[in-house]
């Protein structure tokens, strides 16, 4: 008797424990399901080659979603992430072209691109955390500023990136596609970051800012560091989009900002802060990419594609929120 009454409870508890330990599980299930759907509609799309292509196309969104995650951890939001991506994209393309496109020029431009991303993040952090402006409107204002700066550097899209750069990004190294090295490097970076004190502090600030402050955490510097991370990952995302499109475009990231927020929510993180995972955001970004691909391979008439994508994203967004709440409950 006792066993019978206990079994369902332990099972429910096991499910919750699993969700608690791996909150990104629902996102993972969605990604696998979408992959299978993709394979069903177009078997070819599951080939090694197609998956590599998918990854190199959506790597930028993955990185941008991760950028967004760290500020959302702290209960903030960064509506300028896409604009930072555009700005770094045009800046590195123009610098590479001006310096001749050799290996040295490329590396130097990338280093400056990272610094530029960090500088944008610092500005966001100062206006939101130190000057205490509301994050949504303040980062929207900085996004207008960054977009203006990007237009100043490159008024119209089209300057090509040096061949060395995009050939490396789209090519292979020792027989393995380069984008897998990026993924591996990213995983290591995220692992290292997840072991640092900063991530815990960001989550503490997002969970209860007042409590974090009262227990002695330097709340303002922590939030600024969150925006610095966001700027850094936005710059990394810019490198990937430059490798993928092989050119500079001052407006390339505009539409990606809201997708990055959506990816974070898909991954099960709480927009109110204090709870989430970067792995979830990574999977969330892939979900958006896979939805676009499934809708295409399903043979949806072209005029309906945007609508079906929008509807599918709305549905999985809801699923992400509900699953995230389940795990936290």
């Amino acid at each position: 008797m006792a066993e019978i009454t206990i079994t369902p409870r332990t099972r429910a508890g096991g499910m919750r424990k699993l969700l608690e330990r791996y909150p990104f599980l629902p996102a993972l299930v969605i990604v696998v399901a979408l992959l299978l759907l993709n394979g069903f509609f177009s078997p070819n799309s599951l080939s090694y080659r197609s998956l590599t292509g998918l990854l190199s196309t959506y790597m930028a969104l993955v990185l941008l979603a991760i950028a967004q995650t760290y500020v959302i951890y702290a209960g903030d939001i960064d509506l300028s992430a896409g604009a930072i991506l555009s700005l770094v994209n045009v800046a590195i393309v123009v610098l590479m072209e001006r310096w001749g496109g050799g290996a040295g020029a490329v590396l130097l431009a990338l280093a400056l691109g990272l610094l530029l991303g960090l500088a944008c993040g610092l500005l966001n952090g100062i206006v939101v955390a130190a000057l205490r402006l509301q994050a949504i409107v303040a980062t929207f204002a900085t996004s207008i500023f960054f977009t203006g700066f990007a237009l100043y550097i490159l008024p119209v899209a089209g300057t090509p990136a040096p061949a060395l750069f995009w050939r490396t990004y789209g090519g292979r190294l020792l027989g393995v596609p380069f984008v897998f090295y990026i993924l591996a490097g990213l995983v290591v970076l995220l692992l290292v970051l997840s072991r640092t004190r900063l991530v815990t502090q960001l989550l503490a600030v997002g969970d209860d800012q007042q409590a974090a402050f009262q227990s002695g955490l330097p709340v303002v510097p922590i939030r600024i560091k969150g925006y610095l991370l966001s700027g850094l990952f936005s710059a990394l995302a810019a490198f990937c989009i430059t490798g993928d499109t092989a050119s500079g475009d001052p407006l390339v990231g505009g539409k990606m900002t809201l997708y990055s927020v959506a990816a974070v929510v898909l991954g099960g993180s709480a927009l109110s802060g204090g709870w989430g995972t970067v792995v979830g955001s990574l999977l969330g970004a892939l979900t958006i990419g896979l939805i676009n691909s499934v809708v295409f391979f399903m043979g949806t008439p072209s005029e309906w594609q945007n609508f079906v994508q929008g509807l599918a994203i709305l549905v999985v967004l809801m699923a992400g929120v509900l699953a995230g709440r389940r795990a936290r409950a």
Binding site: A141, T142, I144, F145, G148, A150, Y152
Partner: peptide, 11 residues
Amino acid sequence: DESGRQMVFGA
């Protein structure tokens, strides 16, 4: 220019 306009607007 459009670029200057946006920068001034944002600031």
